[in-house]
Design a protein around this nucleic acid. Structure first.
Lengths: 354, 354
DNA sequence: TTGAAAGCGCTAACAT
DNA sequence: ATGTTAGCGCTTTCAA
């Protein structure tokens, strides 16, 4: 057979064995740091590897029953600074444990999740982490049935009862924002929702409603504008909110990116923040601190989440019978400069519309 | 052997064969969409797969000489919106071609590059893309010698002469900014450099110098402040620049993030942009358009870069003898609101310091 | 301490 | 059209 296209070949364990004049099992032993190898032979093997530029083929190793020492990570969207930061933290935590990371992004296509899970968990990785905005799914059930080690990291609190999960008190985070705003004196608070198919979006909306109810404030549906976590939708929603006959004195956006859009609409209309309009976001992306005024937001302990997730996964890889854990980490309301009591000139609101 | 820890097993091609009552080669044929399989048998196989929840093991396939249909991508830093966007574009381009993407991030540790290249190119992937800020390296030479398909995507123009490369007229981009600023009338232009070990940083600095020289303007070393592409360094550099006995009337930051820092320092000192100080950045991240005033910057055609890179790589996987290509895409100076002629009150500068 | 050999799940000849 | 079989590169028995 002529060496036509096909894959480029590189030195294998056998080449090394030949070069070092040992059996290829011995090479494998050196590779895996076995004890019973005579030092001089080990040296010879090492030298041969060096000379041949040998590098282990992880696929083959994994196939042969060793482990791959790689962890799969499936995320929904890398464009989100929130995701990017979690990924980075996970990567670092894993590197400490000598695991590699392979990352798959679904770019918002939920149907890809199952595909990636399939690919990764059939040979490619020793464990799987998922950063997904959705609730219970079929593929999770299958993973569980197969007893494949995995961990969910999410920013919402609704999921099945068999998946190991790291999450935060995200509902509480949203509620905290509302309480803060209400106690500042706001009565008409606009809410820009997240992407409707994300659980977090429903959850934050629910917290908005709950806080209103808890303080005996009326719920005006016009004050709830749909967004999708993107800047553009935040812009449109803010426009709608400010064009209301009775515009809100404060706007709570379900994430920071949409809150930034509120800033821009306000600026274009000559509205001062927080003088004329208070604004709060969610996620506490780094940019919050750089805004003028700095944006009040809700922080999730991303670093801790990542590290705990990594530890949990590694544990369940080591001992297959580790109990299913779920950890809920606290969110934190980060109060900055974007909120203050509503302008005193404001009259007690008179509701005209239904 | 008791089914102790070890990997969870899942259905293999043989299980399917048994279940469907065919030879396991036939299953493979169905799997790979071969022509010569009787429709009814194909159906039986498909059904069996369904029943068993079968999923192909990519490792095994790849080992057996098929291809993995996976492309590796090594990037330097995901935190950068620039990177994130390229990754996303590449992923989409690859998905069209039915390739999966596995991504490795070095998180700024250059020494990891060689390791990842090794891992990925020994069995794991059919081709490799790299998004790295560095110049020629040993591992690229090796890849080339092995004839392993790969492509470099970078934002600088200095590299070896055997690597397929996609790049942009980045030097020209920086030069364009300077020309624009100079023709606006600026004579003292501050420059905040990029991270010193990145080629792009040296290149942009070089363009800064070249433009000054071309217009016969003096080069004041004090106007060049070191940065590292991070916000914080931009902040410090701006402080240093504005504290100069003769501060610049314009600042060109080697990337947008540092330009944002210029905004913040200016604001904290009560300086108007562009009235008191003109500012320009590089990269044209989305945030530029949202700033007030919107930031003038240099755009690289990320989407085109990604698509071309994907196409190039796929080509060189298909035909091993495709000639080494290098494509240089044009950058574009995106003029927004952050620059204007220097204040007329400005006197002709008198240089006191050496 | 080392070598020989089986086999991981699959593809790709080679048979039939 | 389909079955049989030889590996891919490696780990891991089992012998020696």
């Amino acid at each position: 057979m002529t060496e036509k296209s096909g894959k480029p070949r590189s030195a294998t364990i056998k080449d090394v064995a030949r070069e070092a004049n040992v059996s290829y099992a011995t090479v494998s032993r050196v590779l895996n740091d076995y004890q019973h190898v005579r030092p001089d032979k080990r040296q010879r093997v090492l030298a041969a590897m060096e000379r041949l530029g040998y590098s282990v083929n992880l696929q083959a190793r994994s196939l042969a029953g060793g482990h791959s020492q790689v962890i799969g990570l499936i995320v929904h969207d890398l464009g989100n600074p929130y995701t990017a930061q979690v990924v980075q933290s996970i990567d670092e935590a894993l590197a400490h444990a000598e695991y590699e990371l392979v990352l798959h992004t679904t770019h918002g296509h939920h149907h890809k999740e199952a595909i990636y899970v399939d690919i990764l968990t059939h040979g490619m990785v020793d464990g799987l982490m998922m950063l997904i905005p959705l609730g219970p799914t079929t593929y999770l059930q299958q993973l569980h049935k197969r007893r494949f080690p995995y961990v969910i990291v999410c920013d919402h609190q609704q999921f099945d009862d068999f998946s190991p999960t790291i999450t935060t008190t995200s509902w509480q985070g949203a509620y905290d924002v509302m309480r803060y705003l209400i106690e500042l004196g706001h009565r008409r608070i606009g809410f820009i929702t997240g992407r409707s198919d994300f659980i977090s979006a429903a959850e934050r909306l629910e917290a908005y409603r709950a806080a209103l109810a808890a303080y005996g404030l009326p719920l005006d549906p016009a004050l709830i504008q749909p967004g999708d976590y993107q800047y553009r939708s935040g812009y449109a929603a803010t426009l709608a909110l400010l064009d209301l006959p009775q515009p809100p004195t404060a706007i709570f956006a379900a994430n920071d990116l949409m809150a930034f859009a509120v800033y821009d609409v306000a600026r274009s209309r000559g509205l001062q923040i927080p003088g004329d309009l208070s604004v709060a976001g969610f996620d506490d992306v780094p940019q919050c601190a750089y805004m003028h005024p700095a944006l009040t937001s809700v922080r999730q302990p991303l670093l801790d989440m990542a590290q705990l997730a990594a530890r949990m996964l590694l544990e369940s890889i080591d001992e297959q019978d580790s109990p299913v854990k779920r950890i809920v980490l606290p969110t934190e309301l980060v109060i900055r400069e974007s909120c203050q009591p509503p302008a005193p000139t404001e009259r007690p609101s008179i509701h005209i519309n239904a």
